[in-house]
Design a protein around this nucleic acid. Structure first.
Lengths: 191, 191
DNA sequence: TAGATATTAGTAGTAGATACTAAAACATCT
DNA sequence: AGATGTTTTAGTATCTACTACTAATATCTA
């Protein structure tokens, strides 16, 4: 039985740290009712880095993301963009995005990717979504990679119509027609 | 001249750390051509936290952001619910939800609140969003509290039509018509 | 040149670890 | 029950990037 307990604990540990990287070995030991050494052995065997390393990674990721898209915070990774024309982003899904009871990714994540891609596409400091008609064509499961393609279909003054299609592999999972409004930067001149 | 040099160095230090929180005192000392102690004195005088604390803060912020559109089943706080009838939730917005360049809350947060409220309303273990028509009626600013009200307007077999209206105070900011499908729990019995 | 300000040096102590050795507890097989 | 292997715990030395503190030296200014 010992083997089982160990395996289960290690699995739980992996998951827990994925969801909450802010726990020290001490806290983990208390949580699992084992000694610190056991936790350290487990982390070693699983190749999980220490608290400080985990924090650094989270911070770096966040920082990289904020930096690289400082003006156009995007959900997913922006792969390609031609302002006021077309854009493409990729979102790797995981179980933190699913319903508690299933492995199906919740709709608003798919929407967020599409919506932020559409907003990034607008050549203006700020773009507000005015309205949208969206359709979910097939469920997306945790672990699948969503590729979203956005195309500007119409420009009328400050208004933009943008069509977004999202795929998993070559299966369509989502389509949306977005109406966005380009805003001048609200008060300050760029700085 | 000493005072000037010190003041300038401290200003530069503040800015540098703001832009790049990943530098150790040693690296900072090398960069400014002074000793570690000087850097530590400077940080003390300016009330700037140490590297590890800075990393932790960046990581926490980042994590908070990820969380806001993930882990929980419902975005916002569920205040009231009558399954298959109506529900109400409240979302307190903050600047982590805004565009970098303005204080306007990004559309997908408002959508996420509405979508998850609609899904919660369906009396089934899992509810998938099939499609939606949404409209943003007015911008929401960081700090404002969004109240979302959802109502089931039609039930047809596993299909539910749900109307969601969101308010800030008594101003309408969002309306959406959602089509959801109730799913039996896909394979496992609830656990 | 005295006095103030700024800078540097150095020590003790901290958290949260790594890396390592060794003992104890437990499980398993015969 | 005894030998063997796995798992868990204990404990020590060492590390980084510090804080908190004392004290000496360098530099500037009046």
């Amino acid at each position: 039985m010992a083997k089982l307990r160990k395996r289960q604990r290690q699995e739980a540990l992996s998951e827990l740290l994925e969801r909450n990287p802010f726990l020290t070995d001490q806290e983990l030991a208390a949580r699992f009712g084992v000694s610190i050494q056991t936790i350290r052995l487990d982390r070693m065997e699983l190749g999980l880095p220490e608290l400080r390393e985990r924090l650094k990674q989270v911070a770096e990721q966040a920082y990289g993301r904020v930096k690289s898209v400082s003006s156009t915070d995007i959900i997913g990774d922006l792969i390609e963009i031609n302002l006021d024309e077309s854009a493409l982003s990729v979102l790797d899904t995981d179980s933190s995005m699913t319903f508690a009871a299933s492995e199906i990714v919740r709709g608003h994540h798919i929407f967020a990717q599409a919506n932020s891609l559409a907003a990034a596409l607008v050549d203006a400091p700020v773009a507000l979504t005015g309205s949208a008609q969206i359709k979910y064509l097939a469920p997306v499961y945790a672990g699948q990679r969503i590729v979203a393609k956005a195309k500007v279909t119409k420009i009328e003054g400050r208004k933009r119509l943008i069509k977004v299609r999202s795929y998993v592999g070559d299966k369509d999972v989502f389509v949306g027609d977005f109406t966005l409004f380009a805003l001048a930067n609200s008060s300050e001149d760029k700085r």
